[in-house]
Design a protein around this nucleic acid. Structure first.
Lengths: 221, 221, 221, 221
DNA sequence: GATGAATGAGGTTTCATTCAT
DNA sequence: GATGAATGAAACCTCATTCAT
């Protein structure tokens, strides 16, 4: 689980402003057109560097994509981490989680779109695995740790499997993220609820989701 | 919301065996390589017809894809429909649902891969909408109807919004489908649970998911 | 100079209404899209007959095109012929000619578009020759005959070559036809004159063209 | 009316010899086969560059065509311009014009074939308009200016409309160009005159055409 | 006479990646 | 470090024409 780098040393040495620009423009291109239709020659042009230099920074298109993806995911992960290491009870954490995710999805919809992109990527299994490892393992730990500790303190039903419940929780949150950011999920949200999630007041959605989660974790009657 | 056709009349007239062959081979190609990397020349060759004839059947690659997608989705939808129109209580239905989805995902993993594919498609919003409409609207109705009726008969917590809860339920089930069939989700499942879902006994997963769902819908303590 | 047929016997035997329909729809397709981009499968479909039958009527796309072309040219030719065989003096004939051409171009712009089409066709020289022969030889005769007879009666300058002057006259009239019907020529007309020929009153154009022709044929000062 | 470019910057930067080669081979291909049947893969191969590079120079086949077309038209335009800005009387100019056009048509028949090609193009009106604008507007100005000034100095009939007469003059000259270069027009010329224009002595044609033009512009008797 | 399913060569265009400078 | 010209395989899609029925 060592942190892999998907960029070359030259990228590390590059001017921080340029590094940011590459990531931002890359994210913009990948999230708007999708991985296959994104064009790294265009990215280089927009950044204002040559395509040759781009290949000094990243070995392949895929590496650039992954670097962009991780950049976005790290930002969200940090926010979630801060919530989960607090002393709050699980349900308090859950509320903070949901609210943070709503905000983040609106602010950084492109990051989520990239994440959505990789969820349907068909590539080498090996590559896929190491990416999933990096993105999911930290998030899964903080969920599982929190749930396990809630289990110990008796805050949640005693017969739940923390790992699976962590996954279910994540599934719900991820689906919500996608509803905020990805066309198909947004449309699905509208079909189910008759609500355009991007124009709606979030409170109804948040309160219902929290109700769902809260119940799910609670003691059986 | 009328049923749109994404194939030409010539396809309707074609020999049923050939129609099936086209769909099966198309699904195989699309689900294994993804939409962008699928090659309709290859599909035609494998089917044993000329590429010209393929275009007498389908106006574009996209239309062929959607036709394949709907074919797979219809099969699942029918199975779900039969469960949801029964007189069973919601939680009984939920169990049947989960079990059916497990079985179907294993048997027809390619259908789910195609569905996963469209979940991250970037294309014309209009097109996206009509597809979502066709795939999601019937499924959403049967979920919402069942929940609403459970609500009336007092089987579930009275303060839930049936539409949102239907969506949350679907999110959990869809995520499970993807875990069975799509690389990234399977990997994610393994990271959270340490289980290779395709080699595992399903009962642990099923029972935990049912617990989660059951609790979520239950009366608050 | 024997009149060649570019259709098969079956076409002769076909129902007259159908024959007309084929020609009209063919002309519509060829004139709107140009020869290369016209599609005879579409023509057959619009006519309401099978493509197979179309090939019972015409051996090739080119034959259908030529048959359509000749159909339109014959109609114009008849009108011109009636004018030129009259006893009128050449300049009276010229005026009638110009007015007839204006009217015809507006009414049958598609015929002219097809004629324009063949003017830039790159094909077998042999084929080209026989078509030109059929379309141009009668028209050239009636022009040359009229000019020759005007020459004899001393109505026009005595040192003109009737054949070349006939060609020059035809060039002017053909250019006018194209200005009424073909995009590029219409645009050229607008650039030279600032007039949109399709919205303009024709009289200014007609009177100037007649002045030009009249002068051209007149005795030198 | 600003000069539009139909090539990319990379083409400007390319080696001048290569640029010329591309234009010459492009003109050869387009003029011999027509726009639709011309093949840019063949052009690239003959030039000795990859098709990919071709597309770095020109965004589309159409752009390559227009660039070739303008290249040829510019050469003719320059020759005509030099004649028309001289102090010669209009009829002297006319003679120079006709002789220049004869020579040019023989030497650069391919340029004229391309021009003929666009005269029957069916495409977007907008595109057509801007091309016509570029090719015709300068030529029309020099004609109109010359005629207007002849009008002022009393060298031509006073009741002529300089714009329309300029167009008529151009129609005659253009028709002559086509007779020298394009199959159909050459054939038509032969049918009218019994002369193969490419094997004939030009003087008879030139003298008759000048007579026609001279008369046309002269004072009425 | 009439049908229409079937063919398949062929052309435009894209873009990740290399490499000489 | 930086450039950007150059590559070329590969994919979608069209349509005139044939022929078995």
């Amino acid at each position: 689980m060592l942190e892999k780098k998907y960029y070359k040393e030259a990228f590390e040495r590059a001017d921080p402003e340029r590094k940011n620009l590459i990531l931002e423009i890359g994210i913009e291109e990948f999230s708007s057109k999708g991985y296959e239709n994104a064009n790294i020659n265009i990215i280089a042009k927009k950044v204002g560097i040559s395509i040759g230099l781009m290949y000094k920074y990243f070995a392949t298109k895929e590496d650039l994509f992954i670097t962009c993806l991780k950049y976005g995911m790290d930002i969200l992960e940090k926010a979630l981490y801060d919530i989960m290491v607090s002393d709050d009870k699980l349900l308090i954490k859950a509320e903070k989680l949901v609210r943070t995710i709503c905000m983040h999805s609106k602010k950084h919809s492109n990051y989520i779109k990239m994440y959505n992109e990789i969820c349907s990527e068909k590539g080498s299994l090996e590559r896929m695995r190491s990416i999933a490892e990096e993105i999911e393992s930290r998030r899964s730990s903080i969920y599982i740790t929190s749930i396990t500790s809630a289990l110990k303190s008796g805050d949640v039903r005693s017969d739940l499997d923390p790992k699976l419940f962590a996954l279910f929780l994540d599934n719900l949150l991820t689906s919500l993220q996608f509803a905020y950011t990805c066309d198909y999920y947004r449309e699905k949200f509208r079909i189910y609820t008759n609500i355009d999630i991007n124009k709606s007041d979030d409170e109804q959605v948040i309160s219902q989701l929290l109700k769902f989660i809260e119940s799910a974790f609670s003691y059986e009657k």
